[in-house]
Design a protein around this nucleic acid. Sequence first.
DNA 1: CCAACCATGTAAGCTGTTACATGATTGA
DNA 2: TCAATCATGTAACAGCTTACATGGTTGG
Lengths: 180, 180
Amino acid sequence: MSSPGITPLGYALLGLIREMPRSGYALRSVFESTPMGNYSSSPGSIYPALEKLRKAKLVEARQPGRGKGLYHLTPAGLKTLETWLRRPTVEPDLSVELLRFAFMQFTEDHDLMRGFLRSFAVTASTQADALRLFLESPAGSALSLHSRISVEHGRRNYEASADWAAWAIESLETQWKRKE
Amino acid sequence: MSSPGITPLGYALLGLIREMPRSGYALRSVFESTPMGNYSSSPGSIYPALEKLRKAKLVEARQPGRGKGLYHLTPAGLKTLETWLRRPTVEPDLSVELLRFAFMQFTEDHDLMRGFLRSFAVTASTQADALRLFLESPAGSALSLHSRISVEHGRRNYEASADWAAWAIESLETQWKRKE
DNA sequence: CCAACCATGTAAGCTGTTACATGATTGA
DNA sequence: TCAATCATGTAACAGCTTACATGGTTGG
């Protein structure tokens, strides 16, 4: 779904490993104990995904203790992750975009975050507008009230995402100023 | 993911066929031309899914014209659909819940819609509160601002869903009153 | 007659899920 | 010592995607 065969789960793993070296078990715990749980869960997906990343030489495992040890990123892994983080924001799949945003914090690249959030806001607004225009179009007006209400749910979600992005920029800018 | 092996796509097909008998091609067109496109798209998923429904005797195909003809629901299919529509609203997966809401319009059962929307609002609010509590908890406060902003996106989306449900009840009640 | 559209399917491949299975370590 | 937790995996299966393949009908 992008670079050769890396799934959102794969990027989630790369991002978490970049934050700090972790064991497979530790990675699982993150998914189980935080709101990141959307990205998979059980061993059946995480261990094979890690194996795939290892075979692609994006991560390596070191044995300081028991088990396989802690995974850490290879230079190629870091590069792959960085490339993904810097990809243009086009996909209307906001949940994957949000994953990217979450991992941008470890770059400390303020311009990247700013640019991403602006782009995210545009994408979300565009989708919201598309639904609004659909509702106002002949095709939309022909729908039952019930159907229009259903579509409105999607419209509001996109709108909420756009509002969030604007708020996120403000929050971050405020903090950045304070730290100067 | 519920009744023996019927996926969200399967229910989407049942719901659309209930609205009116349709050919496989017509069903595809709905996914391609409306905001319902989240539920699959291409022949590779829809035709096998239809075959599965046919084998389960939930739909039948009649040949009025070319091709296989129009699919319509069997009594068992209608019952399966109705049971699904009346299931308690528990899943935090709002997109599937929304699919259910969309197809409730063909029941014209106002109490069902009312009950669903109230329950949906509770579910969404509960999820929003869970995220808010997480953010306020020690674990949440320990997160970076960036992480907290990421979680906030989810919180706002749930909140928007809850607001939508309240608005939807109002809109429907208003229309129902007007029709009396 | 040819393009566009109606109409239906198959095959390979990838991902993920559930359920099962195993064993080491550590604290009470 | 025994339960909990750390830690890693596998096997069967379901579902979807992409890409390919085929043929009929209709309007210009």
